[in-house]
């Protein structure tokens, strides 16, 4: 009771703080509301149509199986990460551990990564189409798609790795150099291990983007609903869903696919926040 009246008294003398308080609460409610709405909508629309036939071994236009698409998604995920993760991590290691601060080259890289991360994914798709599909003549293929996605998530991985490396206390580096260790040993044995969970959470966020990407893939990997090798055209789960709803004949199956997609993305985000939590604990 007295707490209430205390609050009221504060608000009377500072009316703006009441307004602000209400505004923040509205914002929070809206955010949570929208999230619940979307998830609820997807689940209510999709779950009733989750049938075993959706997971049959091969796709036909009757069963609309998403199994090939799931397999393709993981191949795509793996291929894009195999390219982007090492590249991004090494680039960040260079930026943080080797490059001189304020060096012009570093500023250029930073500008590039920042710009790249703001570009809509369809632009990556068109670039991938021009470069990988046509110029390199890799055709519409998983490889073209994976390379395009790799470029797309590269800035994300670089930035998060940079942050993770910077969060490692300089005193560890000093301690290591002070014992006569070289740069390479210091980076691999002292700096990278405590940074690993931060790096991981960036990689997992990248996985989330790859998983949900459609625009960048339509013109690079294509929409063939078959198990695809790297040189074949193949659709990922997101594309699968896009195609189903685009054709307009299989809306229910599309909804069911959405449920699977959603579950996987939520799982990935859960992993990301777990890794991030570990980072804050490990960093002390």
């Amino acid at each position: 009771m007295s707490v209430m009246s205390d609050k009221m008294r504060t608000y009377r003398s500072h009316p703006m703080s009441l307004v602000f308080n209400i505004l923040t609460k509205i914002a929070v409610t809206l955010t949570i509301g929208i999230f619940v709405l979307i998830v609820g909508y997807v689940i209510i629309k999709g779950v009733p149509y989750l049938k075993p036939s959706l997971f049959s071994a091969n796709y036909t236009s009757d069963n609309c199986s998403m199994l090939p698409a799931i397999a393709n998604t993981f191949i795509m995920l793996l291929a894009a990460l195999v390219i982007a993760a090492p590249l991004g991590i090494f680039c960040a290691v260079y930026l943080v551990e080797y490059a001189k601060k304020g060096n012009r080259f570093v500023r250029l890289i930073r500008l590039t990564t920042e710009t790249l991360s703001g570009i809509p994914s369809i632009v990556y798709g068109l670039f991938g189409n021009m470069f990988f599909v046509l110029a390199l003549n890799w055709k519409l293929s998983m490889l073209s798609g994976a390379c395009t996605l790799a470029i797309m998530v590269l800035p994300l991985i670089i930035r998060s790795t940079e942050e993770a490396l910077k969060s490692v206390d300089d005193s560890f580096r000093e301690g290591s150099y002070g014992l006569g260790a070289g740069k390479l040993r210091t980076i691999f044995v002292i700096v990278l291990p405590p940074a690993i969970s931060g790096i991981l959470s960036g990689v997992i966020l990248a996985m989330g983007r790859i998983f949900g990407e459609t625009a960048a893939l339509i013109y690079t990997a294509g929409t063939v609903a078959k198990y695809a090798g790297l040189s074949d055209s193949g659709r990922t789960l997101a594309i699968h869903m896009y195609s189903l709803s685009n054709e307009g004949l299989h809306m229910n199956e599309a909804s069911a696919t959405a449920v699977v997609l959603l579950v996987v993305v939520l799982l990935l985000n859960g992993l990301a926040s777990l890794a991030a939590k570990k980072l804050s604990k490990g960093g002390n």
């Binding site: 005193s171 560890f172 000093e174 301690g175 014992l179 006569g180 070289g182």
Partner: peptide, 21 residues
């Protein structure tokens, strides 16, 4: 060599800086 120097001339810092291992 800098590694030899630092091996022969060791350093203890103001703040304990043991590695997280």
């Amino acid at each position: 060599e800098i590694t030899e120097l630092r091996k022969r001339v060791g350093m203890v810092f103001q703040k304990p800086n043991l590695f997280p291992m």
